[in-house]
Computed example of a mutant assay.
Amino acid sequence: MDPMQFQNILIGSAIVGFALMEFATRRYQATVKATANDTKLELFMFVSLVAITQPLAILTTQHAGQTLFPQWQDALAHWSWWAMFGVLLLGDDLTQYLWHRASHSPLLWPLHRAHHSAQYMSVRMTFRNNFFYYLMMPGLWIAGALLYLGFGGWVYVTYLSLKLTIILGAHCSWRWDEPLYKIKALHPVMWVVERIISTPATHWAHHALTNKDGIGNYTGNFGNMLFFWDVIFGTAHITRKYPEHIGLMDDRIHGQEHWTHQMFYPVVHSRRADSALRFGGTIYDENKQ
């Protein structure tokens, strides 16, 4: 079995495993009230990411490298696994933290808004986003360049599988960290864990409907694999609690945006008068209401 096949098995198992736990604990049935609009957005975004965006980034960087810098192909393949892993953390996960943080600015928010428009948490909405949000994500292109330089094989497979498992777990409606907080002997362990990786408690706070309950932190908790970036850069908010409501207030007021507008803005625009998905539209800010 080659590394790519093993990676697909690991990631597929993580998706299926978390989905089964959502159903087994009945968290999915109780909390996920998805519409047909939600399903289309999440399905088409997942397919486009796997079939178009990620292959495009890898193939383009490979072609550019072979055309412009053929002498650099596999130039770093002799590096130790831990050196490669460390560079991947910086080149992929840190840049994704920075890209995610930047996407909450007025300029880039329309490209990330779709991820927050889900009124539920679940593995199904992990990759819910705007098509151009992923296409412009620096980490995908940096990862492609690193693969060209020789970061492939088992190191990249291990890194990506671990990262996606953590991200899927952070979005899962099954709150795997909740019972662990209640075990007194694990308090020191969980204190470390919640400051290193993204957990449901910290990431759900990022998807909260409001910051006013003292739990939500949609202006922070940007970490994807590592929550440690939030700790370092001062955007962390840790409560070990979960927001009561998920989603966007303007959608609750005006109704959902159509999936095509969420996925393909700025190519297509919303028809809503009060919308971030149209030129000149308004971005809802609860502090100004």
Rank of each mutant, 00 (worst) to 15 (best):
Q5K: 03
F6P: 01
F6Q: 09
Q7L: 13
Q7E: 09
N8Q: 15
S13A: 15
S13N: 13
V16S: 07
F18K: 00
F18W: 15
A24E: 10
A24G: 12
T25D: 02
R26L: 08
R26C: 05
A30M: 10
V32W: 11
T35G: 12
T35Q: 02
A36N: 04
N37H: 03
N37A: 05
K40E: 12
K40L: 14
L41I: 04
F44P: 00
S48D: 09
S48V: 04
T53I: 11
Q54P: 00
Q54A: 12
L56W: 14
A57I: 04
A57E: 08
I58S: 09
I58A: 13
T60Y: 13
T61P: 00
Q62H: 14
A64V: 05
W72F: 15
W72R: 01
Q73C: 00
Q73P: 00
A75V: 07
H78F: 15
W82C: 03
W82H: 07
V87W: 15
L88N: 03
D92Q: 08
D92F: 15
L98M: 10
W99C: 00
H100R: 02
A102D: 09
S103R: 02
S105L: 13
P106F: 10
L108D: 11
W109G: 13
P110T: 14
L111G: 13
L111H: 06
L111Y: 06
A114W: 09
V123S: 04
M125N: 13
T126D: 08
F132L: 15
Y134F: 15
M136N: 09
P138D: 08
L140M: 08
I142M: 09
A145C: 06
L147I: 09
Y148T: 01
G150D: 03
V157Y: 04
Y159R: 06
Y159C: 05
Y159I: 03
L160Y: 14
L162V: 10
L164K: 08
C172H: 06
W174T: 02
W176V: 07
D177F: 14
L180R: 12
Y181A: 05
K184C: 12
H187V: 10
P188F: 00
M190K: 01
W191G: 01
V192C: 03
E194Q: 07
I197P: 02
S198P: 01
A201Y: 03
A201W: 00
T202A: 09
H203M: 07
H203I: 06
A205S: 11
T219C: 02
G220V: 04
G223H: 02
N224L: 11
N224D: 07
F227H: 13
F227S: 02
F227N: 06
W229D: 04
W229P: 00
F233Y: 06
T239F: 08
H245T: 06
I246S: 04
G247A: 05
M249E: 14
D251I: 05
R252N: 12
G255E: 01
E257V: 05
W259P: 00
H261K: 14
Q262N: 14
M263D: 02
P266H: 11
H269L: 12
S270K: 11
A276V: 10
A276W: 06
L277K: 01
I283Y: 06
Q289N: 15
